[in-house]
């Protein structure tokens, strides 16, 4: 098993421009079932690079190509509507890669799609999900990892690759890697992913990569302590050197001046260690700690 995506995942790609095509093709080459693309004006044609049909709507892609997962690659101004379209079409797993989506758009989307609809929305501003050997939906470079037992969840894309790469070099593979995204409002939180890993028989250890800002890492840590204290778990929080009040690239990566506290990397590390979780000072150390825990 794995979580969120596997060999039965059938992907419709919303946004078939150059980036969408580049990554969808890579996903397809990896073995992912990419079954369709959508485009408002190119319905009825073929997506040449992938050899799959293009539909005008997600609804058609579901009805005619059996899509059950959407990868959203449209530009930020259209992301809200694209996610809502996938939701209305009955898609149960929506993976939104796009960065720069207004926070009010995502707040509205979260309310409808996740809170009311109960649909699995991952992202936006995320690298996607890979279940090595089965399916890769998004922009994660698949050749740096291999199937295995570690569940990896992260707010950062490239940092995730870094850790997967270091684990792979030590011979350690991944059950599923979920990039949850760096925005303040994202569809799937650390805790959601960790709960899914806890129920996945193939996942035997968990690595999670957090960042400054917010408090989702702590929530996940508390749950780990109370529910799966024996699962080997290693964390890393990026941004020990980040100054207060400065947004570090990601819209959500900011330690608010005079904020609620608990948002800095040092504070998060301390809180998580209080829950019995090993927290590294850098990504290489996180990989080393995981390698040690798996002996």
């Amino acid at each position: 098993m794995s979580i969120f995506i596997d060999e039965n995942t059938k992907v419709v790609v919303q946004g078939i421009g150059s980036q969408g095509t580049f990554h969808a093709k890579r996903n397809q080459d990896y073995g992912t079932q990419v079954v369709a693309g959508t485009h408002p004006k190119k319905g009825g044609t073929t997506w040449d690079e992938l050899g799959v049909p293009v539909y005008t709507t997600v609804e058609e892609a579901v009805a005619e190509a059996g899509a059950n997962t959407s990868m959203v690659m449209v530009p930020a101004p259209f992301t809200k509507d694209a996610i809502l379209e996938a939701y209305d079409a009955g898609i149960q797993t929506i993976i939104a890669i796009t960065e720069g989506v207004p926070v009010h758009d995502m707040t509205e989307v979260y309310d409808k799609v996740v809170r009311e609809g109960g649909v699995r929305l991952i992202g936006p501003n995320c690298p996607g999900v890979i279940s090595p050997g089965k399916s890769n939906v998004g922009i994660i470079p698949a050749d740096i990892t291999k199937p295995g037992k570690v569940g990896l969840v992260s707010r950062s894309g490239t940092l995730t690759y870094q850790i997967m790469h270091e684990l792979a070099q030590a011979g350690i593979g991944i059950s599923t890697c979920v990039g949850i995204g760096g925005d303040p409002v994202i569809g799937t939180q650390f805790l959601d992913v960790i709960k899914a890993f806890a129920e996945d028989p193939e996942t035997e250890a968990i690595a999670f990569v957090g960042e400054i800002g917010g408090s989702e890492e702590q929530k996940a840590g508390e749950w780990i302590r109370d529910n799966i204290p024996d699962t080997p778990t290693v964390g890393y929080i990026a941004g020990f050197e980040a100054p207060e009040g400065k947004q570090m690239g990601h819209a959500g990566a900011i330690v608010k001046e005079g904020g609620p506290g608990g948002e800095s990397a040092a504070e998060k590390k301390e809180i998580l260690e209080g829950y019995g979780i090993a927290v590294a000072m850098n990504p290489s150390e996180a990989a080393r700690l995981m390698i040690q825990r798996l002996g």
Binding site: R155, S156, T158, T160, E211, A238, E241, H250, A265
Partner: peptide
């Protein structure tokens, strides 16, 4: 200079260490 906010934050951390 790096790509990805998380990786750049981690780069600052590693340089400091």
């Amino acid at each position: 200079l790096g790509n990805g906010a998380g990786l750049v934050m981690a780069t600052l951390d590693v340089v400091a260490q």
